[in-house]
Design a protein around this nucleic acid. Structure first.
Lengths: 217, 217
DNA sequence: AGTTGTGAATCTGTTCACAGCC
DNA sequence: GGCTGTGAACAGATTCACAACT
């Protein structure tokens, strides 16, 4: 029996979210236990990979039986750190910002969007989807007062760098960045970049080169 | 000199989009040449990685000088398959669908959104952002008539599986999937999944475990 | 029989370090 | 001196295969 569960592969962390959704799905189908094989099949993975991923965090399974869904859900939520509430801000209320502010999936994982920042004077002081809108100059104040840990950036590329600096200055802990801008920083925060055009470009690449096959990416 | 540029690492393909944006940025700053070191620094990568990535596709650089920006942009666009137009459909005109339909970044890379599908009778026959809205039952007809290669799925999870099946049946070549649903398929199409809640969950994980350090993800 | 957990083997991707060219 | 391109070394992630348990 292994006692030390050391640095976890980044790839494993990314898959935990997928496992969580699979478990919730299996539970809603009325299952009590699920095997690594079933988790794998539902996601186009191998069962060995599922077992190895989960074994990074402990011995959750029962041989011959599989994993107890209810308790594995709790475990994964705890591992991911979503067995609590997170306060989230959205910076930039364009189309994308509106979509993210209205996205139901965030609430379900314990992410509460509690503030929006935008430079449009017509929006400031009002609410969108029940969420108050502030001027970016008030970022530090609002982030501290509302105890916001994570920000989602959906501003135009030209405003991105400045927004990130302001957020870091305000003491934000994590940033989900939807702009093209990439920061290389030594500061103490976590940043994850999502490049929407890049996703389509990757698809175009694989369509163009069907021989170098790679279906699910 | 290597003549065969074989199966390219998936990770490399993903970075090509980043390089492309970096090159466009450097060009707009007035540069003619750029070194692998500069590309790397702008993105928090190593210069060796940039060189190795680019060397997958040919010898584009000039020793002692760097890469000619203008021609490297053309090369990468050609490699990615975006030196042409792609016709794209959006399936599901909720908040996210609207955001994607209005997203400027797609146009810039040659992705034209030419059709939207939604079940809302009040929307069908109208336009959003100048893009005509159709009933999903007409998918096969519209996709063929408008020569659509790629679809973006932003429907509720409950409708996702059906939408994917309809798209594949209509002969779609690539799908960008924003729903939780994962398909494991043997069919001849490329699918890429983007999990928005999962992105935030990964951030929560790394905030919760600051010791297992990993800043830019 | 069915399934987990895991060491070993394999595969994939990154970094090093330097020859070769400008 | 500066920079690319790349083989070799290294690190990371996946798959194999099987002992152990129910």
């Amino acid at each position: 029996m292994t006692e030390y569960y050391g640095p976890t592969p980044l790839a494993t962390v990314n898959r935990l979210s997928i496992y969580l959704r699979t478990l919730e799905e299996a539970q809603s189908e009325g299952h009590k236990y699920i095997s690594s094989k079933s988790i794998a099949e539902r996601n186009g993975l191998t069962s060995a990979q599922v077992r190895k991923d989960l074994s990074c965090f402990g011995n959750f399974g029962r041989k011959g039986k599989g994993y107890h869904i209810q308790s594995l859900i709790q475990r994964i939520r705890s591992i991911l750190g979503i067995n609590r509430k997170w306060n989230v801000a959205i910076v930039g209320l364009g189309h994308l910002g509106e979509a993210l502010a209205g996205y139901k999936g965030f609430q379900r994982s314990g992410f509460d969007i509690v503030a929006i920042f935008d430079i449009d004077e017509n929006k400031i002081g009002k609410k969108y989807n029940g969420i108050p809108i502030f001027h970016p100059d008030d970022m530090k104040k609002v982030i501290n007062r509302k105890n916001i840990q994570i920000a989602i950036i959906s501003v135009p590329a030209s405003a991105a760098k400045n927004s990130i600096e302001k957020l870091v200055d305000a003491g934000i802990e994590g940033i989900l960045n939807f702009t093209d801008v990439r920061v290389s920083t030594k500061d103490e925060f976590v940043i994850k970049n999502v490049n929407l055009a890049g996703e389509l470009e990757t698809i175009a690449y694989y369509i163009t080169r069907p021989d170098w096959q790679c279906r699910g990416i």
